[in-house]
Nucleic acid binder design. Sequence first.
DNA 1: CTGTTAGCGCATTCAC
DNA 2: GTGAATGCGCTAACAG
Lengths: 346, 346
Amino acid sequence: MPPSLATKAATLHDVAREAGVSLITASRALGNPSLVSEKTIERVQKAVEATGYIPNLLAGGLKSRRSLLVVGLVPAISVAQFLPTVQALTEALDAAGYQLILGQSGYDHAREEKLLNTMISRRPDGIVVTGLVHSPVARERLRRAGIPVVETWDLSDHPVDMLVGFSHLKVGSAIAGYFLGKGWQRLGIATGDDHRASVRREGFLATVGREVPTAVVPAPSSLALGRLALAELLEKDPATEAVYCSSDQLAQGVLVEAQARGLRIPQDLAVCGFGDADFAAHMQPSLTTVHVDGAAIGRLAAQLIVERCRGQTVAQPVVDVGFRIVERQSTGGPSVKTGPMPPKGS
Amino acid sequence: MPPSLATKAATLHDVAREAGVSLITASRALGNPSLVSEKTIERVQKAVEATGYIPNLLAGGLKSRRSLLVVGLVPAISVAQFLPTVQALTEALDAAGYQLILGQSGYDHAREEKLLNTMISRRPDGIVVTGLVHSPVARERLRRAGIPVVETWDLSDHPVDMLVGFSHLKVGSAIAGYFLGKGWQRLGIATGDDHRASVRREGFLATVGREVPTAVVPAPSSLALGRLALAELLEKDPATEAVYCSSDQLAQGVLVEAQARGLRIPQDLAVCGFGDADFAAHMQPSLTTVHVDGAAIGRLAAQLIVERCRGQTVAQPVVDVGFRIVERQSTGGPSVKTGPMPPKGS
DNA sequence: CTGTTAGCGCATTCAC
DNA sequence: GTGAATGCGCTAACAG
């Protein structure tokens, strides 16, 4: 940027002078027009154009104590699962005049604490966390800060503040029930090593009622790791009939590896994923999986934050959005060809 | 949040009193320790712990004119292609003490302008855009604002400021050259309708030297749209030998649809994608595609911004990171089984 | 409807 | 090394 062009930005002061009104009148004309006459508003708006004024939210936020900033924390941006949530969150917040600051908390408590501190120093009007806040120090700090917090994608008896999620224990249990209902006995689990996946596994085991061969892969999971996982499972039990995978990416890898080994799906091996990624319905064979409305989670989280910021009392601070098993060909579901589809909205 | 807990947050003033020093000494102890004696620093740090002080960056930024905020603009968060860039950008900025504000510019100029205005009002220390800034109004405004800007994932003779990218024209041309070198004559294109994909198509056509049957799908592309696209291409020319797809997601759909129709890959149909998504190497057959180092783009963009903010002159404000074609089985590349892989770092 | 006064919390500029 | 004063740009509270 040639420094010559970087002339000092116009301030509200300049606008007020240009419009021939006082500072505060200019401020109101822009931020609270109902208090100002139409004529003045017009003059101020003209002055804004003339000066090229762009408001300074830092200064405004300092006085008004509303930063119009919301912090969003994800374990890592590349975790596809949370993308619809982040996208919907960003959109819903934007519509209400808020922007999202993104942070990657990793899978590490120390980092989570440090990051939250940094973020709180921005005085955000709200914080949305994917998953629960695990570090006790961080939980306490958030409570102290008095900032509206929404934990998501999980359920807890003791949320920091508000929560939009569902029970991973029930998900695991539901999948196990589904497998048992199909009469499959020789089961396998391919799972990531993160907290939520572990809870799903617990639910799965609780319903099965005994140990099940398991391949654990480091998060974030991927197609490549799925291939590896199936290899491991077949080594443990070559006659495995059905595998539950903690993500659709993992399940895709399991399918690829199974096909590479000449196994027929689902006759020789049934597979169930988690997440209902956009490709799940359109693979060949299509993938049975667990659908969670990630976009709804984002929208609801935004709504809770905004309501709080407006001083409204939130009727339902803990929302369970539930989930549902979507049965497709990989577990012998309906073999109707799903076929090419129009693009999804958004 | 029980309002009872939301006691007024401690300010630097409180810390100073607690430590028995003046305001400014406390400020320096935290932000510029080299100017303060060790003893005082210790006392201030104790006072910070005692009061639970968390600095207010809004206030600091107002005076110092450094917000430590960088804006990142993507067309949409769900575009998988940019994920490694956003992730690396977030990480590299975080390491330098900056946070990222995320914005979704969509594929619409009016929205791009409005969003940039909103973002500039945060007085960010830098702006990173995926793609070029297209709206002339926005370009001018950015120049005026005097904020360091990095455009990415593209090349331009007239960047707003700095740029890290590569030539999509050359990518298209390279793929066409690769196809022609293989002796394939009956070609097809499955492409998204966004700007960069269109330029790749241009490059492809320029090298082929004639029109080629094309299926255009609305961005963002997906596996489902890829199936649809192949159906359309085969209708136009049932004897199509090779298809270039503007994304790996699209290519995956083309492969699925081809296999559903009993076509052998690559004997009956060769397929090349773009992006080298994490699944490309591990599909069956593995996918020939164009590799771009998205993470490097993010890291370099962060570096440029940070250098500028530190007042250093940037040696190379325009960086071409290049690309390379990765030949795999879908175009008859080496049939070594890529097999399961360890997780990628990051 | 409009204006005046007084800060928001901190960092820069000068003094000592 | 430390400190006192000043103001970043804006808005909340009170006047008129």
